[in-house]
Design a protein around this nucleic acid. Structure first.
Lengths: 125, 125
DNA sequence: TAAGCTGTATTAATCGAATAATACACTTAG
DNA sequence: CTAAGTGTATTATTCGATTAATACAGCTTA
């Protein structure tokens, strides 16, 4: 069962955050093919949002071929290794590029950036 | 005159993006005390948004003591070195912590994070 | 001085995100 | 089998962000 323990509400529409969360968990290998998604109703209760908002996220995931839904049954993760690699590369491209651009605009040098990473990389690898 | 050349539209409300942009340019020392802000109307035309949206951003900046407005005259940046340092530290805390958390969730190791920074830090220091 | 720009304010309308309340057909487990 | 849970769909409403259209008084400069 796909867990939302690591989900932290951030900026932007909730349905997009859900999609991003799933992609990141897939990228890190925590979510695997054939894993069960929580039902729309259960997840909406867990996150404290409306079922329609969750449905919107699941619809997007299905359109991208990341989950498969059968009316009446739970939705499942369907994922080839190729798709997983593509998702990971896309996320790295977006997020890393974004982080670098932001740090540079703040006026951080490359060395200072390395120090910041060190400083905030507290926990395990 | 404060320039918006480096402004790139991103996520979230536009008025918040404007506030963040100004703070980052202040942090990097590109914007100085007594610099003139573009007028609400000029900036709204430049960004292609409504004057009210810009006004909302300027109001927030004024509430934070970052700019000062006099009816009829251009708004000016007012900033002590202490405020600048605080703004910089706040931005670093938020953005660097954020970037690290995101990279970790994607399943990036610390070493891989360093490689990514190297790779995307193309331009000058 | 006079025109043009400036900050400020007000009111109405639009638009997307999110909520709310149902309904129905399908599946799965007891 | 049957009840409970599930995916899906529909309609109405709320809310914040944004647009739109003005208006007015203060500064600034030619």
């Amino acid at each position: 069962m796909v867990s939302f323990e690591r989900f932290v509400p951030g900026d932007g529409p909730i349905y997009q955050q859900i999609v991003l969360y799933i992609k990141r968990e897939i990228s890190s290998g925590i979510i695997h093919p054939d894993d069960e998604m929580p039902s729309r109703r259960v997840l909406s209760a867990l996150l404290g949002v409306n079922p329609n908002t969750v449905q919107k996220a699941y619809k997007l995931l299905e359109d991208e071929g990341i989950i498969r839904s059968h009316s009446g049954a739970k939705s499942l993760i369907v994922l080839s290794e190729k798709m997983r690699e593509k998702i990971r590369n896309d996320l790295l491209e977006n997020d890393a590029k974004n982080a670098v651009a932001t740090l540079k605009q703040i006026g951080v040098s490359k060395n200072e950036a390395f120090e910041l990473i060190e400083r905030f990389w507290k926990e395990e690898d």
